[in-house]
Simulated assay, not measured.
Amino acid sequence: MKRSWITFESSKNDTHPFGVEDGAGATALSNERALSTIQEQLFDGDNLSTIGKILENVGVSKLDANHIRRDVGGPVSPGIWYPLGYQ
């Protein structure tokens, strides 16, 4: 299992679901599966916003301590661990 951190570009044409302005975190067998999970659960199956970066095998300790780390779910299990509420 790999922890992926995905950030999205901000533009007038892209709308983000609540809570993903800073990015989204998912654990899956591959980045492709992580993106698929994010698309299904965060974007309700709609197209993803324009992807900025994908960090593979990200250490949660590397993420922003004041905003992101305090709101991380269980990054060991498959599925979305940031933002909370989409598990």
Score class of each variant (00 low, 15 high):
residue 35 L to W: 03
residue 58 V to T: 08
residue 35 L to N: 02
residue 29 L to A: 13
residue 17 P to S: 07
residue 6 I to M: 07
residue 72 V to G: 02
residue 80 I to D: 00
residue 66 N to V: 02
residue 30 S to R: 08
residue 4 S to I: 12
residue 10 S to L: 08
residue 82 Y to F: 15
residue 3 R to I: 07
residue 22 D to A: 10
residue 54 I to K: 08
residue 63 L to F: 03
residue 16 H to I: 04
residue 2 K to D: 00
residue 50 T to Q: 14
residue 87 Q to M: 10
residue 50 T to H: 10
residue 36 S to D: 13
residue 22 D to S: 12
residue 40 E to N: 13
residue 46 D to R: 15
residue 87 Q to D: 15
residue 39 Q to H: 09
residue 22 D to Y: 09
residue 15 T to R: 12
residue 4 S to N: 12
residue 48 L to P: 00
residue 11 S to N: 11
residue 45 G to K: 10
residue 36 S to H: 12
residue 57 N to G: 11
residue 58 V to Y: 05
residue 62 K to A: 13
residue 29 L to Q: 04
residue 33 R to W: 03
residue 3 R to K: 15
residue 76 V to G: 09
residue 67 H to R: 09
residue 25 G to T: 04
residue 45 G to H: 09
residue 83 P to M: 05
residue 69 R to V: 05
residue 39 Q to Y: 08
residue 71 D to M: 07
residue 26 A to V: 14
residue 83 P to G: 05
residue 38 I to R: 00
residue 29 L to P: 04
residue 4 S to Q: 00
residue 47 N to W: 07
residue 64 D to I: 03
residue 74 G to A: 12
residue 74 G to I: 06
residue 16 H to P: 01
residue 5 W to L: 06
residue 53 K to V: 11
residue 48 L to D: 05
residue 39 Q to A: 05
residue 63 L to A: 04
residue 60 V to C: 12
residue 4 S to W: 00
residue 3 R to N: 09
residue 41 Q to A: 12
residue 22 D to N: 09
residue 12 K to S: 08
residue 84 L to R: 14
residue 79 G to V: 10
residue 17 P to C: 06
residue 82 Y to W: 03
residue 10 S to D: 07
residue 74 G to N: 15
residue 39 Q to S: 13
residue 40 E to P: 00
residue 31 N to K: 08
residue 48 L to E: 03
residue 67 H to Q: 06
residue 27 T to D: 00
residue 16 H to W: 10
residue 57 N to T: 01
residue 47 N to M: 14
residue 3 R to Y: 04
residue 28 A to D: 10
residue 61 S to N: 08
residue 38 I to W: 01
residue 15 T to V: 13
residue 79 G to D: 10
residue 55 L to M: 11
residue 37 T to E: 13
residue 17 P to Y: 03
residue 17 P to A: 08
residue 31 N to F: 00
residue 27 T to N: 01
residue 52 G to T: 04
residue 56 E to A: 11
residue 36 S to G: 11
residue 86 Y to G: 05
residue 69 R to F: 06
residue 84 L to Q: 14
residue 24 A to Q: 06
residue 51 I to D: 12
residue 21 E to D: 12
residue 56 E to V: 11
residue 62 K to C: 08
residue 81 W to S: 01
residue 37 T to H: 02
residue 12 K to W: 07
residue 48 L to C: 14
residue 40 E to H: 10
residue 5 W to R: 04
residue 15 T to D: 07
residue 19 G to S: 08
residue 48 L to V: 09
residue 13 N to V: 09
residue 51 I to E: 12
residue 44 D to T: 05
residue 22 D to I: 11
residue 56 E to S: 15
residue 5 W to N: 03
residue 33 R to H: 07
residue 13 N to F: 11
residue 65 A to M: 08
residue 80 I to N: 00
residue 69 R to P: 03
residue 79 G to Y: 03
residue 25 G to A: 05
residue 54 I to T: 15
residue 70 R to C: 13
residue 42 L to V: 15
residue 12 K to H: 05
residue 39 Q to G: 01
residue 66 N to F: 10
